[in-house]
Amino acid sequence: MAMEARQDPARSRGAIARIAGQLDVHPEALRGWVRRAEVDGGLRPGTTTDDGARILQLEKENAELRRANTILRQASAFFAAELDRPKK
């Protein structure tokens, strides 16, 4: 409804505030929802909701792999030091 009103030049001025009042939501909340819908629909540049979720998942996976690599590196250094000790 809000996206349609914004596309119509006769109704676009103040459309978000007017529709937000009809829906009993804050105008900035509605404006954010419209922007998100435009990005997801390809009408506005930006990161889509799906891409954002995928990026977040990949960042978490990357952090976990970095932690695992650190643990493996430390374990490797520990065991290498044990092998280098002179035997009695």
Rank of each mutant, 00 (worst) to 15 (best):
residue 2 A to N: 07
residue 2 A to M: 06
residue 3 M to V: 11
residue 4 E to Y: 05
residue 4 E to Q: 06
residue 4 E to P: 00
residue 4 E to D: 09
residue 5 A to P: 02
residue 6 R to G: 05
residue 7 Q to R: 14
residue 7 Q to W: 10
residue 7 Q to N: 11
residue 9 P to H: 04
residue 9 P to K: 02
residue 9 P to T: 08
residue 11 R to D: 03
residue 12 S to W: 00
residue 13 R to D: 12
residue 13 R to V: 10
residue 13 R to E: 04
residue 14 G to I: 05
residue 16 I to M: 02
residue 16 I to E: 06
residue 17 A to C: 08
residue 18 R to I: 03
residue 18 R to Q: 04
residue 19 I to S: 01
residue 21 G to W: 01
residue 22 Q to D: 11
residue 23 L to P: 07
residue 23 L to W: 02
residue 23 L to T: 08
residue 24 D to H: 12
residue 26 H to E: 14
residue 26 H to T: 11
residue 27 P to C: 05
residue 28 E to L: 10
residue 31 R to E: 02
residue 31 R to H: 00
residue 31 R to S: 02
residue 31 R to A: 13
residue 32 G to P: 00
residue 32 G to W: 00
residue 32 G to I: 00
residue 32 G to C: 04
residue 34 V to Y: 00
residue 34 V to I: 13
residue 36 R to Y: 04
residue 37 A to W: 06
residue 37 A to K: 06
residue 41 G to R: 13
residue 41 G to M: 14
residue 43 L to S: 11
residue 46 G to M: 01
residue 47 T to G: 05
residue 47 T to S: 06
residue 49 T to P: 08
residue 50 D to V: 15
residue 50 D to M: 11
residue 51 D to Q: 15
residue 53 A to C: 05
residue 53 A to V: 08
residue 53 A to H: 08
residue 54 R to K: 14
residue 55 I to H: 04
residue 56 L to T: 14
residue 56 L to H: 09
residue 57 Q to F: 05
residue 57 Q to C: 05
residue 59 E to Q: 11
residue 61 E to T: 13
residue 62 N to P: 01
residue 63 A to E: 15
residue 63 A to T: 13
residue 64 E to I: 05
residue 65 L to N: 08
residue 66 R to N: 02
residue 66 R to E: 01
residue 67 R to M: 10
residue 67 R to Y: 02
residue 68 A to H: 11
residue 68 A to C: 04
residue 68 A to N: 12
residue 69 N to S: 12
residue 69 N to V: 03
residue 71 I to L: 08
residue 71 I to E: 12
residue 71 I to S: 03
residue 72 L to H: 14
residue 73 R to V: 03
residue 74 Q to R: 15
residue 75 A to V: 12
residue 77 A to H: 07
residue 78 F to P: 01
residue 78 F to Y: 14
residue 79 F to T: 13
residue 79 F to S: 09
residue 80 A to C: 07
residue 81 A to F: 07
residue 81 A to M: 10
residue 83 L to P: 00
residue 84 D to S: 12
residue 84 D to T: 03
residue 84 D to P: 00
residue 84 D to E: 14
residue 84 D to C: 02
residue 85 R to T: 13
residue 86 P to G: 09
residue 88 K to P: 15
